[in-house]
């Protein structure tokens, strides 16, 4: 099990972000390095890539508010 964590240095300020899109389906087999999701802070989009290879479980849905350090999904 590997959590998909929003890196704490992805943006500088202490602002909330929003998940704008999941680019893989819940339950999909993903490979390490695959582009999985987009999150947005103040109109700037950031990419979240797979930290491991395995089956994706989505924990935070599109439109959910998230913070740096949050786990938005899990790969197992």
């Amino acid at each position: 099990m590997t959590d998909i964590i929003i890196p704490i240095d992805l943006w500088a300020e202490d602002r909330e972000a929003v998940v704008t899109a999941w680019l893989a389906r819940d339950g999909a087999e993903v490979r390490e390095g695959d582009l999985l999701a987009e999150i947005m802070v103040e109109k700037v989009q950031h990419e979240i890539r797979a930290p491991a290879t395995g089956r994706l479980t989505i924990l935070r849905q599109a439109d959910d508010i998230v913070r740096k350090g949050d786990a938005i999904g899990r790969i197992g």
Binding site: V18, T20, A21, W22, L23, M40, K43, Q45, A62, D63
Partner: peptide
């Protein structure tokens, strides 16, 4: 477009 500040429509992705 999948840009959150413009609204989100998962059915487009």
């Amino acid at each position: 477009q999948g840009m959150g500040w413009l609204g989100t429509e998962p059915g487009a992705t």
